[in-house]
């Protein structure tokens, strides 16, 4: 095994071009487990820790460019306003020690359906900035990124440099079910973002299908229902029947399996409950914001 320690992004791309099977390692929270237990023996480990820019973020007008290695702890601490859904998701990741090391780039690279960041990225809307020495940089829409169980749209010579995540224009929520009150892998997870600017809602579901998915039918239903009743403008409550229909459609968007962490039936049910609750929380928050603004004006 060789340990490659590129000092710059360009060196990293060159190394990846030369050794397409090299395994990138940043926080190490996935890769080292596989190495410690002998499940993976790559010829080359490609250490990204020395590339300082990967741990940095920039907040632009519409989106945040989040370096691939920005640790979850930094997202929780610094990006709660811009990326509330991802900040909440970050808070559910494993333990404080893991949150100090792991970042979104690793979640995307591994592309496990149980990765905690995925539902938040899907709900907020994001693009993955991938780059290769040969073809330069490209942006992969998050909806096209996950291609199968632990598979993604990256080419073998590509590395993830950053994720561009839409800044929140409305309330976002994130919820995850595990059988322990901390340090637990998701049985399933749900992210929801209200986008008042476009009068849309977006969702993300984790661990309930071969890949992280959006509940698009549920989104369309809710978009139409909100529009029809003028709720974005009048700020009235969402009726229980609309909330329940949305929850049912989210549950229906799942394609879960039975495994040692939970049954398919439970996952469907839990996604529905989380969908209904997060909708209530975000919508009440949206109504509260509107009221506050009205009062202020």
């Amino acid at each position: 095994m060789d340990f490659l320690r590129p000092a710059s992004w360009e060196e990293a791309l060159a190394a990846k071009a030369e050794h397409p099977a090299a395994v990138p390692i940043a926080g190490g929270t996935d890769v080292m487990v596989e190495i410690n237990f002998g499940h993976r023996r790559p010829d080359h480990l490609l250490d990204l820790n020395r590339i300082g820019e990967l741990a940095e973020w920039e907040s632009g007008a519409d989106s945040v460019r989040l370096g691939a290695s920005v640790p979850y702890a930094a997202i929780m601490e610094n990006l709660r306003a811009e990326l509330p859904g991802l900040a909440l998701a970050s808070h559910t990741v494993a333990s404080p020690q893991i949150r100090n090391r792991g970042g979104v780039g690793g979640n995307l690279g591994t592309a496990s359906p149980a990765g905690d960041a995925h539902p938040a990225l899907l709900a907020a809307g994001a693009e993955v900035e991938a780059e290769s020495a040969a073809r330069g940089s490209r942006r992969i829409p998050i909806d096209d990124f996950y291609t199968g169980v632990k598979r993604n749209a990256l080419a073998p010579d590509e590395l993830i440099r950053a994720v561009h995540i839409k800044k929140a224009d409305g309330p976002q929520q994130y919820s995850k079910v595990g059988t322990r009150n901390a340090m637990v892998i998701a049985v399933c997870a749900f992210g929801l973002a209200l986008h008042p600017a476009t009068r849309t809602v977006r969702t993300g579901i984790g661990s309930a299908a071969p890949t992280p998915v959006r509940a698009k039918t549920a989104e369309e239903f809710l978009n139409a229902a909100l529009e029809e009743d003028g709720l974005w403008d009048n700020g009235e409550t969402i009726t229980p029947s609309v909330a329940q229909r949305f929850a049912d459609l989210c549950a229906a968007a799942c394609n879960p399996i039975d495994d040692v962490r939970g049954t398919a039936g439970y996952r469907r049910r839990a996604v529905g409950v989380m969908a209904r609750r997060t909708l209530t929380w975000t919508w009440e928050s949206y109504r509260g914001t509107r009221r506050t603004l009205k009062g202020a004006a």
Binding site: V33, D47, A94, S95, I98, N100
Partner: peptide, 29 residues
């Protein structure tokens, strides 16, 4: 546990608490 699930190997790495089992030796250079 050697998989970041128990915290028994917690050390400070440049001041930050991490699981030493999940830091590749070369990353500590």
């Amino acid at each position: 546990c050697e998989q970041g699930e128990c915290g028994s190997c917690t050390v400070r790495l440049d001041g930050v608490p991490v699981c030493a089992c999940l830091v590749a030796a070369g990353q500590a250079e």
